[in-house]
Design a protein around this nucleic acid. Structure first.
Length: 190
DNA sequence: ACCGTGATGTTCT
DNA sequence: GAACATCACGGTG
């Protein structure tokens, strides 16, 4: 079952935690690919120095201000795409970064896109899973209640919260336990 | 196992 | 012109 708009229209921390165990899917002309979400991070807008939306609305961050359930993508370090889910209601700029998947559907296609054969490393990082799923900059603003990219209900997994990865520049916010991981899962990024 | 490094583009100063 | 929510590779233990 595809998650409805209401799932996303809650606070970012709840959405980030509850996305663990759900299945992220893209359905593109080359085929359907997807996997269980096993690692996420919440980025909490105006109260979060690590968030791209911390300093307000720009051309890049305007999608944060839409209703939950749309896609925010950006290019990092000049070569990797990161895939995020916008959370909360219109006007509240929160988002959830998807950091790792356990590969499930279209594994062969994902291996081809990534040019690598190792299952364990196939989707174990935000850049990796974006490439495996075929997510590009054109996904900016895509509707998760549509057909190209969506999230389905799946299993319930035990979850722990830890500090977020690579946000040391964010001062106090770097210590918040806003990363969520499926306990004991082998497909997480670190 | 753990470094160190090079590749690369967009955003904001 | 710096900083950046990264990855793969090759070196050394």
């Amino acid at each position: 079952m595809k998650l409805p708009r209401e799932f996303y229209q809650r606070d970012g921390l709840t959405v980030a935690r509850e996305l663990i165990g759900k299945k992220l899917v893209t359905n593109l002309p080359e085929g359907l690919t997807g996997g269980i979400i096993v690692e996420t991070e919440a980025y909490m807008g105006a109260i979060d120095a690590a968030s791209h939306a911390y300093k307000g609305k720009t051309e890049r961050t305007k999608i944060f201000y839409s209703a939950g359930g749309f896609v925010y993508v950006y290019l990092i370090y000049g070569m990797h795409i990161c895939t995020n889910v916008v959370a909360n209601i219109e006007g509240v700029p929160e988002a959830v970064l998807i950091r790792a998947l356990e590969p499930v559907d279209g594994v062969e296609l994902m291996k081809r896109r990534r040019r690598q054969d190792n299952l364990r490393g196939l989707c174990s990082g935000p850049g990796k899973l974006s490439k495996a799923l075929g997510v590009t900059k054109s996904f900016y603003g895509a509707d998760l209640c549509g057909e190209e990219i969506f999230i389905e209900d799946d299993e319930t997994l035990p979850v722990t919260a830890t500090k977020r990865i690579n946000v040391n520049y964010a001062g106090e916010a770097a210590n918040y336990l806003w990363r969520f991981v499926a306990l004991g899962n082998a497909f997480i990024s670190v």
